[in-house]
C-alpha cells in the first residue's frame, strides 16, 4: 500500500470523482431524458425533468416490443448459460478425473477453441443453421452460444476440478457409486463457486451480445433486447425521449444485477481474462 499525504489523497479523490462523474453522466442523461418531452430535451438539457410522468416509458416499451424482447433475452440467456455449464462441467469432469484414450488430445482440441474468434466463422454457422432449419429461431441462437462457450468454460472448470481433492470420490467409488452419481453428488457441489463465476461471465456476455442475433434473428417477436433496441433506434431516430426511455429500461436490469453481484462479476471477469 502506498503511503500518501493528505494533499495527495485529496488530489486522488478529486481525480476519481471526476472519473466517476464521466462514467455516470451518460446514464443520468438517458434517465432524465426519459421523463422529458422532445422540446424539453432540446431547450433544457441540464435541468431535471419538469414532471416525472411514465408516459415515455409506456410508449417506448410498447413500440420497441420490449415485452417479447425481454422474454426472449431471458429465455435465450438462461438456457444458454445452463447449457454451457451442463455440457462443459461434464466434459471438464471426464478430462480431470478419468483416464481414457485421446484424453490429452481432447483437452488440447477444446482449448484450441479459446483461440478461434467465433464471430469470424459466422458464414458457415449461418449456412449450417439454415440447413438445420434453425435460422431465425431462438433455439439456433442458443445452440450457437452453448457451442462457442464450451472452450472457455471447460478450461476454467477443469482447472477448478484439478484442484479439489479426490479422497471423497475414491471412497464413494469403493462404495459402488457410478461416475454419474459421483459427478452430480460430489463434484458439482464442490465446484459451485466456479460454476457461479463461469455462469455470471457467460450470462453478461450472452445477454449483451448483439452480433449473433443481428445475423441469426430477423423476424419480429424473436429479437433479444439489444437487437430490439437497435431496430427501435433506427425507426425512431428523432424521438430522443422515447429512445432514452427504451435505453433506460434495457440498461436498468443489468445495472441492478451488477450491483447485487458485483463481487462475482469482478472476480470472474478479471480472472477469466488474465488467469
Amino acid at each position: 500500500m502506498l503511503r500518501t499525504s493528505r494533499l495527495t489523497k485529496l488530489i486522488i479523490y478529486a481525480v476519481l470523482v471526476v472519473y466517476v462523474i464521466i462514467i455516470i453522466t451518460p446514464f443520468l442523461m438517458i434517465f432524465m431524458n426519459s421523463f422529458k418531452s422532445l422540446r424539453e430535451i432540446f431547450l433544457k438539457p441540464f435541468s431535471l425533468p419538469s414532471q416525472f410522468s411514465l408516459k415515455n416509458f409506456v410508449e417506448a416499451w410498447k413500440r420497441a416490443n420490449l415485452t417479447s424482447a425481454f422474454a426472449n433475452s431471458i429465455y435465450v440467456t438462461t438456457v444458454s448459460v445452463l447449457g454451457i455449464l451442463f455440457v462443459s462441467s461434464m466434459l471438464a469432469y471426464a478430462i480431470s478425473r478419468y483416464d481414457f484414450p485421446f484424453r490429452r488430445f481432447l483437452y488440447i482440441y477444446i482449448i484450441a477453441g479459446l483461440a478461434l474468434p467465433a464471430r469470424l466463422a459466422i458464414i458457415p454457422i449461418y449456412v449450417i443453421l439454415q440447413k438445420l432449419n434453425l435460422l431465425d429461431t431462438r433455439l439456433g441462437l442458443i445452440i450457437v452460444y452453448v457451442s462457442t462457450g464450451i472452450a472457455f468454460a471447460t478450461f476454467l472448470l477443469k482447472n477448478f476440478m484439478d484442484d479439489i481433492p479426490k479422497a471423497l470420490e475414491e471412497s464413494a467409488m469403493i462404495d459402488g457409486a457410478n461416475p454419474w452419481t459421483i459427478f452430480t453428488k460430489i463434484d458439482l457441489p464442490l465446484i459451485k463457486h466456479a460454476l457461479v463465476v463461469v455462469g455470471v461471465v457467460n450470462f453478461v456476455g450472452i445477454w449483451n451480445d448483439f452480433f449473433f442475433p443481428l445475423i441469426i434473428i430477423n423476424s419480429q417477436g424473436k429479437e433479444t433486447v439489444p437487437l430490439a433496441i437497435s431496430i427501435f433506434f433506427g425507426e425512431y431516430s428523432n424521438q430522443w425521449n422515447l429512445i432514452s426511455a427504451a435505453l433506460s429500461m434495457s440498461v436498468i436490469p443489468i445495472m441492478i444485477g451488477f450491483f447485487l453481484l458485483s463481487r462475482y462479476f469482478i472476480v470472474g471477469i478479471t480472472q477469466g481474462a488474465v488467469k
Partner: peptide, 8 residues
C-alpha cells in the same frame, strides 16, 4: 463444439 466451432 465440433459442429459449431471447429467445422465452421
Amino acid at each position: 463444439y465440433t459442429t459449431f466451432v471447429i467445422y465452421p
